[in-house]
Amino acid sequence: MPLPSASMNIFNVAGSAMAAQSQRMNVTASNLANAESVAGPDGQPYRAKQVVFEVAGNGGQDIGGVKVAGVIEDSAPAKMVFDPRNPHANPDGYVAMPNVNVVEEMTNMISASRSYQANVEVLNTAKTLMVKTLTIGQ
């Protein structure tokens, strides 16, 4: 009888995906909030961050949950905007703005929220089935 292995529990799989997607949403929120932040704590313009997803397979398995392998900084060049009155403007009158692509971030947000929803649905279905399994023979 194939018993569900403890390492690949459906609740763990869907839960890890929800955690990963919510982290992605957090990063998107940070990017959107700082789309106009000309200077961060280090005096440099904000750089867009992106999460990298990876399969959290148990012992080299190629199926399993999701984990966030890391948060990388977008390497796209900063947007240069002509604004000579800005105190951060360079001698030519250009200000380095964050490299956040607002359209990309919005689509990222929608994708993350849809994926999150799908995983919630999986979780709910699994929960209903487990409850029904517990009432066998009653």
Binding site: M1, P2, P4, F53, V66, T125
Partner: peptide, 27 residues
């Protein structure tokens, strides 16, 4: 019983697919 166990196993496999819908290079 065998069918039930296999169904549970398949739901785990499919849950893994849904969970990894945004993971690059996931098959």
């Amino acid at each position: 019983m065998a069918a039930l166990g296999l169904r549970a196993q398949r739901s785990e496999t499919l849950a893994s697919n849904i969970a990894n819908a945004d993971t690059p290079n996931y098959k």
